[in-house]
Design a protein around this nucleic acid. Sequence first.
DNA 1: CAAACATATTGATAAATCTCGATATATAAA
DNA 2: TTTATATATCGAGATTTATCAATATGTTTG
Lengths: 79, 79
Amino acid sequence: MEWLKEPERHFPPHETLKHFNDGVCVTYIQEKAGLSQSTISTYLTNMEKCGLLISTRHGKWSYLKRNEKTIKEFTDFLT
Amino acid sequence: MEWLKEPERHFPPHETLKHFNDGVCVTYIQEKAGLSQSTISTYLTNMEKCGLLISTRHGKWSYLKRNEKTIKEFTDFLT
DNA sequence: CAAACATATTGATAAATCTCGATATATAAA
DNA sequence: TTTATATATCGAGATTTATCAATATGTTTG
């Protein structure tokens, strides 16, 4: 969640997409997290299901970005 | 944590102490939570150790109240 | 001091979570 | 249309968490 606040500071640029408008691809997140591909895929899927992330598919890549609306609702609830 | 925001709304008055200045006794929290005495005692001890609660002993009773300072630090971190 | 009461600690078990490798599926490239 | 690449799903083991009953410790009261 923290990394996705500033993708350009935490991830290399995408080869195909020249921007981070839809977030970061699963592979980059997986490599940086240092967990297995299946683990990260499951985590990201769950985080999307519970509304914390937004997933967008471009060709064979899935890009993940923060869902600021739900995140705010959640932190507001915690506060 | 939520109950302790307004003890007078969520708990009966204490017999000995006539106020909630130091929070609520373990027994009341235990009864309201519906978990065993040992479970609640452990939880409250841990929450105190990690700074979320402040524990004050008056005679044979322990009273628990929120540690607003640490709670704020934590919610700030989450936000 | 002994009995009673409030809280703390210990030891145990069931359930949940973390994490992986293997495999499946989807998409693009050759 | 086979192969390569990216992501998803499944099944399983190890670790952690939730929770309890039993027991211990601390404190007051008779």
